[in-house]
Design a protein around this nucleic acid. Structure first.
Lengths: 356, 356
DNA sequence: GGTAGTTCTGTGTTCGCACACGAAATTATT
DNA sequence: AATAATTTCGTGTGCGAACACAGAACTACC
């Protein structure tokens, strides 16, 4: 229709400016080596014409190759991190055309040393960019400093470290997601209902995210001055099913008005499991993340709500933005909170089906 | 790492097969003019090597240009259709590189003749593909037949017509979204609560989508054998605010246990408005679509839930898929139900912020 | 004014693919 | 067997931009 649909080539503006194509090229990439005079002329035309390069041709011709390294925890099948990896794989495919080579490196998320050693190796390999999940805060911080020193740009995924010069971050606002969970869990409960909060002790302590979610949850209760129910904290172990069952049995024996339960990590399916074993029905149950097991219990009405993000999407976009920044020189948004998706039995189907 | 990262050019496979590049090209596009013998050889290599063309180079070299026409209702600012248009605009920008030219044509969604005349004009202009919203079923059906005759591929948006040979469709499962609404609206209501359903008479009758949502809503009630509440149907007009207010006032006067309300079109903000005027608080209110006004009331806790889709995304993907099909010859999914997004005050912020 | 050194500029090649045109090989026709 | 008709094949050019290299213009210095 209008200007948007017309193609303008370097050749054209060279013609208009009365200089050679080489000169235009030099101005575009400010490679120096251009006289003040012709630079001004070309820049004026560039401005007027609102030139935008043909990205296809650009990367086709470009001899530059980029190595992006993704550094994330290793994981079980159907894990949260597997989704992340799927996103990276998709991006790898899409961006290969742009001469971008994606490498994945994994570390053990329960072993601090694993992170330091793998990250050191990554540094040695001199990548053009790094995308990583800063699970161990301090070590991650060190890593970012090294990256800065070597002028290697990096992005965070899943969680982030403030006050550090990263390219972009995609992740959920954990606090807010706890807040949302509270609303869903506590809204229109019968008076004097009892609500249990499950925490799981695991090696390495509770994760940051889990803690933040819990804070958001509590904040909601404070904000709304909710008092017509009773909160019961229950601590479970990471590995002893038998013990956990006993603890829960005891809880249910001594409290006979439990109407709701929540856990802030992604393992709500285990809780669902226990409730099933104990024949506790009619309990409003909320958890996080779309693990296969979680979905199963959501579909069978044991779990009422799952709060989800889109890890694969986040991973993909992180790569995309890194490209935009490094290669296409476009300005991008640094901190991106992804939506807190509310899933229940009735809308999970379409959600899962729709992978975009 | 492995094969994925190696680039294979036509030149390479020509070399491997011992034929000329021209021949490979002919096999790839089966332009005929290739002897059985060399075709087989090339095809075998193609298979082995798992060749995938460089899309950048392909469309850079291609002289083909495509004209896609989008045919949607005209609309108010901040309307549902404006989002759709935004999606198209974005796609237009992204796909211009691929020699695709997007045109938008608008028709009056309350005037059947407007559709027929605009669609006729579109046909005359012989576009390479058409994307349209089949608001008027019968006229749309005629249109598809003409398109078929002229071998112009087309996709639906927003709603669809079954049993017609379209390329793709993105839209919400209206029935299911009614079902979801029912669950959110009716779950854990106090006993004997009253629930009002608002319908709006408008010229041209209720829209298909509205009717289907309502059916889904009712189906939920049936499926769950819910009986502990009373449904009250209220009919409002499209234009007479005064009358509507009176009707509602009357309803609230004669029923003093109204706890929830829903409307199946996107104008729930009007209902919110009325409730405000009548000083009816503490009513669980659910509606559809992210109109600015709706969001306002959601944020101020008048509306409890909004069910949303992503019209811009749908529009964008429709274009993308049309390209995949026509230009990149990839197989795509025909019917795509988009997720039913559940928004409330606490998660709308991140959702709106995240435009991907 | 001549030469060396520096800054600037024009041209040519390449990326991977599409497409056209003409040459070569094959088949048909007399 | 020679020629015409047809099928197959090889090569060259262009898409829009990146980059390299050599040559031109300009500067500095003796």
């Amino acid at each position: 229709m209008k200007n948007q649909d017309k193609k303008i080539r370097i050749k054209d503006i060279a013609l208009l400016a009365g200089v050679s194509e080489g000169t235009v090229d030099r101005v575009l990439h400010n490679r120096g080596e251009v006289s003040e005079k012709s630079r001004i002329v070309v820049e004026k035309i560039l401005e007027e014409i609102n030139y935008s390069p043909n990205l296809l041709a650009r990367s086709l011709a470009s001899k530059k190759h980029f190595r992006f390294v993704c550094l994330i925890p290793n994981h079980q099948p159907e894990d949260y991190w597997e989704s992340v990896e799927r996103g990276f794989d998709l991006a790898r495919k899409d961006y290969l055309q742009y001469n971008i080579h994606l490498e994945k490196h994994l570390y053990n998320q329960f072993d601090l040393n694993s992170f330091t050693s793998v990250s050191a190796k990554v540094l040695d390999s001199k990548p053009d960019a790094v995308i990583f999940a800063p699970i161990f805060r301090e070590q991650a911080l060190n890593f970012t400093q090294e990256l800065n020193l070597q002028k290697i740009p990096f992005s965070f995924i899943d969680s982030m470290i403030e006050d550090v010069d990263f390219i972009s971050y995609y992740g959920q606002n954990s606090f807010q997601s706890g807040y949302v969970a509270a609303k869903l869990l506590l809204n229109s409960l019968p008076d004097h209902a009892q609500v249990i909060i499950i925490r799981t002790k695991r090696k390495g302590g509770e994760s940051n995210q889990t803690i933040t979610r819990s804070k958001g949850f509590m904040q909601y209760i404070n904000d709304k001055h909710l008092i017509n129910f009773e909160l019961i904290n229950v601590d479970l172990t990471d590995d002893n099913e038998e013990a956990n069952l006993n603890v829960l049995r005891e809880v249910f024996n001594t409290n006979n008005n439990i109407k709701a339960a929540i856990t802030f990590n992604s393992k709500v399916y285990r809780l669902a499991n226990y409730l099933n074993s104990l024949h506790c029905t009619n309990i409003r149950l909320i958890g996080y993340d779309l693990l296969e097991e979680n979905i199963k219990y959501l579909k069978s009405d044991v779990i009422s709500f799952l709060l989800a993000q889109r890890p694969d999407k986040q991973a993909y976009l992180t790569i995309r933005d890194m490209c935009s920044e490094l290669i296409f020189k476009q300005k991008i948004k640094k901190t991106n909170y992804v939506p807190i998706d509310i899933l229940m039995k009735e809308n999970i189907e379409d959600y899962m089906e729709f992978r975009e």
